[in-house]
Amino acid sequence: MLEARTWTGKATLQIIVTLITIPFLIPLIVMVQGSFAGQGWGNYAAVLSLPQLPSFFVNSAIISALTIAIALICTVLAAFGFAKLRIRGKEFFFWLLLAALTLPEIVLVTPLFVTATSTNLYNTYWAVVLPLAALQIPFTVLITRTFMNGIPDALIEAARIDGANTWRAFWHVVLPLTRPIAAAVIILTLISAWNAYLLPLIFLQDAGSQVVTQVPSFFQGQYNDDQTKVLASAVITAIPLIVAYLSLQKLFERGLSAGALK
């Protein structure tokens, strides 16, 4: 890892990082400023006064938690198999899994709708949770496999010499070392699940089962478009993601950097 040791190098690096960050900060600053336009804090009061808001947050939390659980379990197990186990044709299956990264969400709507209705999952959380987890798993397996490739095989061999089978070696040796990449998987999956808009809109038809991404629609319609309250709702719904990232920031950065480099 490159490190600036001189004062000039540190100052130059700080300037470069600041310049790179500015384009990403401008939309956030504009969003926060716009949310205070007009009525100021009244915009936030109007959003918080929506009677459906608590249930929307609960629905998003449930969908996000289930999606994270499924994605994390499948990712860790699949990455361990691809990285450490001798499986015939595993490279073929790995690249077949990565091919799913090329499929946009909108292309899958029709087959997912047919599947959901034929399996009686339509208008349930699972109609949203399962596709969200499936869409996230290929990328998370990619970075997790790279991370697990960095775990020395000698640790697993030592566990087997001590009498541990493959499952015990995974549970007691490999899994405790995956905390950084697990944090990265959790954050990435949380962002995807919490910000999901299309799938909940299509597969959750009951008004009480909608999610936080539907909150701005209360201030948009055929004859009204209150952008200040739309921006206020965007700020409010982003707060849980910010808190989650700050809580797992160190582990997330370690896991993502380790999972991106072989």
Rank of each mutant, 00 (worst) to 15 (best):
S257I: 10
S192D: 09
Q14N: 15
S217I: 11
V235A: 04
I15V: 15
F36I: 15
A99I: 07
P104D: 07
L96S: 14
F24G: 14
Q33R: 08
L85G: 03
A61K: 05
R168G: 04
A37N: 11
T67V: 03
L204D: 02
F170P: 01
S209N: 15
P176H: 09
F92R: 15
L248Y: 05
L188K: 05
T189D: 04
P216T: 02
A183E: 00
L155G: 07
T228L: 08
L201Q: 14
I73L: 11
F93D: 03
L142I: 05
L108M: 15
I22W: 08
I63G: 01
T18Y: 12
V235S: 01
Y122R: 07
L155D: 05
L190P: 02
V141L: 07
T6S: 09
L135D: 00
N149A: 15
N224E: 10
W7D: 12
L231R: 04
V30P: 05
F203N: 01
Y223N: 10
I242W: 07
I161A: 09
M31T: 12
W167P: 01
V76F: 06
R168Y: 07
I236R: 05
G163I: 02
L251H: 13
I22H: 07
Q14L: 15
A4W: 12
P23E: 07
L130N: 00
E157K: 06
E253L: 14
V174E: 01
I137L: 07
I151K: 02
G38V: 12
P138T: 01
A69Q: 04
A71N: 11
L85K: 04
I62D: 04
I143H: 00
L256Q: 03
P240Y: 05
W167T: 09
I26C: 13
S55W: 09
T18R: 07
I73S: 07
P131H: 05
P152Q: 08
V30Q: 15
I143Q: 00
I181C: 04
D162F: 01
L246R: 12
I187W: 01
L199Y: 08
I181P: 00
I137C: 00
A154F: 08
V215Y: 03
V129A: 03
K250Q: 13
L132H: 01
L25A: 11
T213V: 13
V107A: 08
A4I: 09
S247P: 04
E157Y: 05
W194M: 01
T115Q: 10
V76Q: 08
T117N: 11
I181N: 01
E91I: 13
N120A: 14
E3R: 08
F57W: 07
N195S: 13
T189G: 10
A46F: 08
P27H: 13
E157L: 09
W126M: 15
A164L: 10
T140R: 02
L177F: 04
G81Y: 00
Q249M: 13
L25K: 08
S192Y: 05
V109W: 04
